Lab assay of single mutants.
Amino acid sequence: HMTFVALYDYVASGETDLSFKKGERLQIVNNTEGDWALAHSLTTGRTGYIPSNYVAPSD
């Protein structure tokens, strides 16, 4: 899985969403939902949907 870094803070709007903080590292599990991606946080160990425009690929 590619690793991504959060560009902004995001507060989950539902139970299936994943909250994260700017700078948090995430792995995209499934990116077939258009503007949303299923992601796993390497920081918190949690998995949920995130807005895909809130993250960018990290080196």
Rank of each mutant, 00 (worst) to 15 (best):
P57W: 13
T32V: 14
S19K: 04
S58N: 10
Y10S: 01
T16L: 13
K22S: 06
T47N: 06
E24P: 00
I50W: 00
V5D: 03
Y8G: 04
D9V: 02
Q27N: 07
A6N: 01
Y8M: 10
G34D: 07
S58H: 12
D59N: 11
Y49P: 02
E33C: 15
A39W: 03
Y10R: 04
N31W: 15
T32N: 10
D35R: 12
M2E: 09
Y54L: 12
T32E: 10
W36Y: 08
D35H: 12
T44N: 04
T32Q: 10
L18W: 03
T43N: 08
T3W: 14
D59W: 13
T44M: 02
Y10F: 08
R25M: 14
S19N: 05
A12Q: 05
D35K: 12
E24L: 01
S41A: 02
N31H: 13
M2T: 10
I28S: 01
Q27D: 05
Y54I: 07
N31Q: 13
T16Y: 15
D59T: 11
L26H: 00
S58A: 14
T44A: 02
I28T: 02
Y54T: 05
F4S: 04
G48Y: 04
N31K: 12
F4G: 03
L42A: 04
S58M: 15
F20G: 01
P51M: 05
G34W: 06
L38Y: 13
G23T: 01
V11H: 09
A37Y: 15
D17C: 15
P57N: 09
W36T: 05
V5M: 06
E33I: 12
M2L: 12
S52P: 09
H40F: 13
T43K: 09
K21V: 09
F20A: 02
K22E: 05
T16S: 13
Q27E: 10
K22Q: 07
G14H: 10
G48C: 03
T16H: 15
L42G: 02
V55H: 04
M2R: 13
A6K: 00
F20C: 05
W36G: 02
H1E: 11
P51I: 03
W36L: 06
P51F: 03
L42S: 04
V55S: 04
T44L: 03
T32C: 15
P51R: 05
L7P: 05
G23W: 04
I50C: 02
T16E: 11
Q27V: 15
T47V: 09
A6V: 11
V5E: 06
R46A: 07
D9R: 01
A12C: 06
S41Q: 04
G48R: 01
G34S: 09
L7E: 06
A12N: 04
F4A: 05
V5K: 04
A12K: 05
Y8R: 09
L18T: 05
T3L: 12
G48P: 00
A12W: 03
G23Q: 01
R25S: 08
G23C: 07
S13H: 11
Y8V: 08
G23P: 00
Y49K: 07
A12I: 03
V11G: 04
V29I: 15
R25L: 15
Y8N: 06
T3Y: 13
T47W: 14
G23L: 03
I28E: 00
V55W: 07
S52I: 15
Y10H: 05
E24T: 01
P51Y: 03
P51D: 04
G23E: 02
T16M: 13
E15M: 10
D59I: 13
L7W: 06
A6P: 01
Y10G: 01
E24Q: 02
F20Q: 00
A39C: 03
A37C: 14
D59M: 13
G34K: 08
Y54A: 12
Y10V: 02
N53S: 14
V29N: 06
H1N: 12
G45E: 03
D35G: 15
K21I: 08
A12G: 12
S13C: 14
K22R: 10
V55Y: 09
S41D: 03
I50V: 10
G23N: 05
S19C: 05
D17N: 10
Y49I: 07
G45Q: 05
A6G: 04
T16I: 08
E15I: 10
L18R: 02
T32L: 15
L7Q: 07
A56C: 12
L7C: 11
Y8K: 07
T16V: 08
V5Q: 04
L18D: 01
N30T: 14
E15S: 12
A39I: 05
D9T: 07
Y49V: 06
D9E: 06
R46W: 06
I50F: 02
H1W: 14
T47M: 09
D59S: 11
A12T: 04
P57T: 09
D35N: 11
D17L: 11
G34N: 08
V11F: 10
I50A: 02
H1Q: 12
T3S: 08
S41I: 02
R25Q: 10
E24R: 00
I50S: 00
Y49E: 03
A37V: 15
S41N: 12
D9N: 06
L7H: 04
G45I: 01
D9A: 05
S13F: 10
V55A: 07
L38E: 03
N30F: 14
G45S: 04
D9K: 02
D17H: 14
L7T: 06
A39G: 04
T47Y: 10
T3G: 06
E33D: 13
Y8P: 00
N31E: 10
D35T: 11
N53Y: 11
G14M: 08
I28G: 01
A37M: 15
A39E: 00
M2N: 10
N31C: 15
W36M: 08
T3K: 05
E15Q: 10
W36H: 05
P51N: 05
L42C: 11
T44E: 03
E15H: 10
E33P: 10
A37S: 11
V5N: 03
L38C: 14
L7S: 05
A12R: 05
Y54R: 06
H40P: 00
L7M: 09
L42K: 04
N30H: 12
S58G: 09
V55R: 04
Y8W: 12
N31D: 10
S58F: 15
H40T: 15
A39M: 05
N31A: 12
G23V: 01
D59F: 13
A12M: 04
A39S: 01
S52F: 15
Q27K: 11
L7Y: 03
T16Q: 13
Y10Q: 01
M2Q: 12
K22L: 04
Y54M: 12
R25I: 15
L42W: 06
L26C: 02
V11I: 11
G14Y: 09
P51S: 03
Q27Y: 14
A56G: 10
D35M: 12
P57L: 13
S19W: 04
L38K: 04
A37I: 15
G14N: 13
G45L: 06
S13Q: 14
A39Y: 06
N30D: 13
T47Q: 07
N53E: 09
R46P: 00
L26E: 00
V11T: 12
S13R: 13
H40W: 08
A12E: 04
E33G: 14
N31R: 13
Y54W: 07
E33H: 13
S41E: 01
A12Y: 02
I50Y: 01
S19V: 06
I28Q: 01
T44Q: 06
G34F: 06
S52M: 15
A56V: 14
V5I: 14
S52D: 03
E33A: 12
S41H: 06
W36P: 02
H40A: 07
S41Y: 00
I28V: 08
T16P: 05
E24H: 04
W36R: 08
Y49S: 03
K21L: 09
A37N: 06
T44W: 01
T3R: 06
F20K: 00
A6Y: 01
Q27F: 13
A39F: 05
E15K: 11
K22Y: 04
H40D: 01
T43L: 09
W36N: 03
T47P: 00
L7R: 05
T43E: 12
N53V: 09
L38S: 01
D35E: 13
V5A: 03
L26N: 00
R25F: 14
D9P: 04
Y49T: 05
V29M: 13
A6M: 07
T16K: 13
A37K: 13
D17G: 15
T44C: 03
L26P: 00
G23A: 03
N53A: 13
T47E: 07
L42I: 08
L38V: 05
